[in-house]
Design a protein around this nucleic acid. Structure first.
Length: 212
DNA sequence: AGCCGGATTTTCT
DNA sequence: GAAAATCCGGCTT
């Protein structure tokens, strides 16, 4: 069942996702993540994860039960569980079998603020509602039930749309956060100076050292 | 504003 | 059995 959208909001086509995640990621900035319950937010921070070429990717060592969605059709949502309590949301990219995706790290809530606030009871300020992959998923009510959801031909009330806002001409770039492998890949992009992106980070505030 | 530790459980080695 | 694509609260500057 289709998601009711404002007239000028258009679904992103399948081919949008059928590219390398480092190409898709910056293009996802300023797009909108929408749910059929009225929740919507502008994507303001993303990270690219490739397949076998990327030691930090869940898909690096090939398909498993957890990452199976990453190896499927692009334009679906890969939802993973980590740290015993947090969900992360990715748009699957590239070709089938590649295992690539773009992690959605932060959105600026636009619609359904009442629902989003009640989903994030701990948030003091609105800028804390969805400025992190776990917070974003919690704000939008995304859990494992949404793993594999189609974002192009929505089957679970979730989609990514274009409202006519272009991606930033010069998106800010930096290293990915919370990983211990391939920290030299600068595969994180965000809207420069956006208030709903965590304060300017020239480097991760907490860098884990690889276990020896 | 930054650093630190605890929470909590799935996943794969 | 250890690490994990994190978050939060509490403590120190």
């Amino acid at each position: 069942m289709p998601i009711p959208l404002p007239a000028h909001w258009t679904l992103l086509p399948r081919d949008f996702y059928r590219r390398h995640p480092t190409e898709v990621a910056p293009q996802l900035l300023n797009k909108i993540l929408v749910r059929d319950d009225g929740r919507a937010g502008r994507i303001v921070e993303v990270e690219a994860y490739a397949g076998s070429e990327d030691p930090a990717a869940h898909s690096h060592r090939g398909p498993t039960r957890r990452n199976a969605t990453m190896f499927g059709e692009p334009g679906h949502l890969y939802v993973y569980f980590t740290y015993g309590m947090h969900w992360g949301s990715n748009a699957v990219c590239g070709d089938i079998g590649q295992g690539a995706g773009v992690l959605l790290r932060a959105i600026e809530p636009l619609q359904g603020l009442d629902l989003i606030r009640s989903a994030r009871p701990g948030a003091r300020r609105d800028r804390d509602l969805a400025n992190g992959p776990g917070k974003l998923s919690q704000a939008m009510g995304i859990t494992g039930e949404f793993d594999g959801a189609d974002l192009v031909a929505p089957d679970r009330g979730l989609a990514i749309v274009d409202d006519g806002t272009s991606p930033p001409d010069t998106p800010a770039v930096g290293p990915r956060i919370g990983i211990s492998q391939a920290i030299d890949f600068h595969w994180r992009w965000h809207v420069p100076g956006h208030p709903h992106v965590p304060a300017w980070r020239p480097h991760p505030s907490k860098r884990r050292t690889p276990l020896k």
